Amino acid sequence: IRCIGVSNRDFVEGMSGGTWVDVVLEHGGCVTVMAQDKPTVDIELVTTTVSNMAEVRSYCYEASISDMASDSRCPTQGEAYLDKQSDTQYVCKRTLVDRGWGNGCGLFGKGSLVTCAKFTCSKKMTGKSIQPENLEYRIMLSVHGSQHSGMIVNDTGYETDENRAKVEVTPNSPRAEATLGGFGSLGLDCEPRTGLDFSDLYYLTMNNKHWLVHKEWFHDIPLPWHAGADTGTPHWNNKEALVEFKDAHAKRQTVVVLGSQEGAVHTALAGALEAEMDGAKGKLFSGHLKCRLKMDKLRLKGVSYSLCTAAFTFTKVPAETLHGTVTVEVQYAGTDGPCKIPVQMAVDMQTLTPVGRLITANPVITESTENSKMMLELDPPFGDSYIVIGVGDKKITHHWHRSGSTIGKAFEATVRGAKRMAVLGDTAWDFGSVGGVFNSLGKGIHQIFGAAFKSLFGGMSWFSQILIGTLLVWLGLNTKNGSISLTCLALGGVMIFLSTAVSA
């Protein structure tokens, strides 16, 4: 259960009878995928790494000078000259100064003066180019299975845990398959586009800190620079940016070097996208990844198990997540596992009318040892309800109150669905055939309105939902006002479609 501690969480529900669903994975976010007769899966884009970055340009932001020398000439005696002028490691300046009897010249006039100092770069920052084909995306998957609280967001041991898996995709191999043991396998067909235009970005490294910066900004930095990788004795261009020549006297000129420019660069980098280094690879934390999940090989585990009949206890007080759902960790005293956990939410304890829904599909106890633990997640209705676990006299209950409203949740879900469709863009549509167009249209309606429909009408039977949709269509056909007619027709059509397409 990876997503319960992530604030940016998206719930995606598969269409009834569908074998695939489109998701948008982004750094700092987590996606929970639910479908009829399929286990619930949490998917998170953990890291995006980039390798084989080529150094484009380096800037010196802290330097020192040494070996200063000057040469001067009297008027009419030609130009002052130093051998160091031809050495690229030196920074030199030529000027004219007033000369006369007082400073060793027989004539009054302008004399030539040249001053040089050896330039040494102490600290530099480097910009590297990123090729999209060198990106690698690491995705962690977790099935809502027989897990306890100690396994949440624990990325170790996934090789031997059938509840978890790690997959890596690249532009050259965008397809992967996550093996989930008894739950089958989940196929991923990803489109490795981060949403960032790397043709316009460089990877900047300064003092063990890293950013993504725009090329134009990078090339306009007014500091000494050299092109390409460091060859040991780089040729620094624009050395004068960190060196200041003071007022010249008759035979000498003082040279000083400016202080470190790291603070000024940090100020200019305010708002830039931060990154990290992992050995020789860069780690990015921006952008998104679009994936199509193929769920035809994914299956529920323990459908044929019998119900657990022994007593359950709450190991922890049920807690609310950031998303309005409830996490419950229970301990089973029996030894008759594997068995299914009898769990439901009810409005009252007399009729036990089921409300809400299970995020953890078909929760089971897989071990036959005593005191096995299991964590599950529920989506309670707004208002008061009861969490009921167990059967008969051994069942345990917990009162729950959820604040908020169904309308607010439906609106929030619609906005999130619209954002998801905007990110998917043209990849969500198939114009290759008439059937493809209608299929894409259905998927689009489901992406945007599916979660809201589930919130508003999830407790009704599909037949009642179709009746309401048919009534809206009838009202649309018999209303003389054009805008009201079109609105009723659209709402009725969407409702009829979703009542037959969205899983219960």
Score class of each variant (00 low, 15 high):
496 I>K: 10
109 G>M: 10
123 K>P: 00
27 H>C: 03
199 S>F: 14
248 A>S: 11
342 P>D: 10
361 A>H: 04
63 A>F: 10
85 Q>G: 09
464 S>D: 07
372 S>I: 03
191 E>N: 09
306 S>R: 08
205 T>H: 15
200 D>A: 13
411 F>W: 10
145 G>S: 14
434 V>S: 01
116 C>M: 11
255 V>R: 00
288 H>C: 06
275 A>E: 00
308 C>A: 05
15 M>Y: 04
376 L>Q: 03
3 C>P: 00
252 R>V: 03
312 F>V: 12
9 R>E: 09
238 N>K: 13
225 W>G: 01
491 L>T: 12
207 N>P: 02
189 D>H: 07
192 P>T: 14
203 Y>L: 10
217 W>H: 08
339 C>D: 08
65 I>W: 04
126 T>K: 01
120 T>H: 14
482 G>Y: 12
258 L>T: 05
40 T>P: 01
81 Y>L: 15
81 Y>W: 04
139 I>A: 02
441 L>W: 09
274 E>P: 08
466 I>N: 09
21 V>H: 01
418 A>S: 02
337 G>D: 12
340 K>R: 15
399 H>N: 15
99 R>S: 09
45 L>H: 10
96 L>C: 04
424 L>D: 06
146 S>E: 01
417 G>R: 02
74 C>R: 09
100 G>N: 07
461 S>W: 11
206 M>V: 15
389 I>K: 09
398 H>F: 05
63 A>V: 13
316 K>Q: 08
129 S>P: 00
333 A>I: 06
215 K>N: 12
279 G>Q: 12
306 S>H: 15
435 G>T: 09
310 A>Q: 11
407 I>E: 05
292 R>V: 06
504 A>N: 13
99 R>F: 08
310 A>L: 00
473 V>F: 11
167 V>H: 03
286 S>T: 12
76 T>L: 01
23 V>G: 01
103 N>G: 02
137 Y>T: 02
210 H>C: 02
246 K>G: 14
214 H>C: 07
270 A>M: 13
435 G>D: 00
63 A>Y: 10
97 V>E: 07
123 K>H: 15
365 I>K: 03
127 G>T: 01
19 T>S: 02
60 C>G: 04
233 T>D: 02
29 G>N: 00
384 D>S: 03
167 V>F: 14
501 A>L: 01
378 L>M: 10
173 S>K: 04
164 R>N: 08
150 G>Q: 15
351 T>A: 14
44 E>F: 06
452 A>N: 11
226 H>D: 08
270 A>D: 02
473 V>Q: 03
21 V>S: 00
215 K>M: 09
384 D>F: 12
239 K>F: 07
95 T>C: 11
165 A>V: 13
181 G>T: 05
204 L>D: 09
323 H>M: 12
169 V>P: 02
335 T>E: 14
147 Q>P: 15
421 M>F: 13
312 F>E: 08
297 K>P: 00
436 G>H: 02
143 V>H: 08
118 K>Q: 14
251 K>R: 03
362 N>T: 08
338 P>I: 07
220 D>Y: 08
74 C>T: 03
464 S>Q: 15
389 I>A: 09
385 S>N: 11
114 V>E: 13
433 S>A: 01
109 G>H: 08
108 F>A: 03
447 Q>V: 14
30 C>G: 04
207 N>I: 12
49 T>Q: 00
409 K>I: 00
401 H>K: 13
174 P>N: 08
341 I>G: 06
181 G>K: 04
315 T>Y: 14
320 E>D: 03
309 T>E: 02
274 E>H: 09
137 Y>R: 01
171 P>E: 06
347 V>P: 15
331 Q>V: 05
504 A>P: 07
51 S>E: 09
138 R>G: 05
137 Y>W: 10
427 T>Y: 02
264 A>I: 09
439 N>L: 13
353 T>H: 00
470 T>N: 05
344 Q>E: 04
469 G>E: 06
401 H>N: 01
134 N>A: 04
446 H>Y: 13
373 K>Q: 00
56 V>C: 02
380 P>D: 09
476 G>D: 10
348 D>Q: 02
426 D>G: 06
268 A>Q: 13
351 T>D: 00
142 S>I: 01
313 T>V: 15
237 N>Q: 15
461 S>G: 12
50 V>S: 00
330 V>E: 08
245 F>S: 10
484 I>C: 11
324 G>T: 08
455 S>V: 14
93 K>N: 09
42 D>P: 00
230 D>P: 13
322 L>S: 01
110 K>T: 03
267 T>Y: 06
81 Y>I: 11
17 G>K: 06
73 R>M: 13
484 I>Y: 08
166 K>A: 15
210 H>G: 01
503 S>N: 13
270 A>I: 12
156 T>N: 05
280 A>T: 14
243 V>T: 11
380 P>H: 04
241 A>G: 01
499 S>W: 13
203 Y>W: 09
288 H>W: 09
341 I>S: 04
399 H>R: 02
2 R>H: 10
178 A>N: 06
109 G>Y: 07
129 S>A: 15
452 A>I: 10
19 T>P: 01
384 D>G: 07
71 D>N: 13
38 K>A: 11
467 L>H: 11
100 G>L: 02
56 V>T: 03
413 A>D: 00
299 R>Q: 06
438 F>M: 09
275 A>P: 01
500 T>E: 04
224 P>L: 10
225 W>N: 10
503 S>F: 11
447 Q>S: 13
5 G>M: 10
311 A>S: 10
327 T>G: 08
295 M>A: 07
46 V>N: 05
123 K>Y: 02
478 N>G: 14
401 H>E: 14
399 H>C: 07
399 H>F: 00
85 Q>K: 05
360 T>L: 01
293 L>C: 02
177 E>N: 08
8 N>C: 06
100 G>D: 11
270 A>P: 12
318 P>R: 01
139 I>V: 15
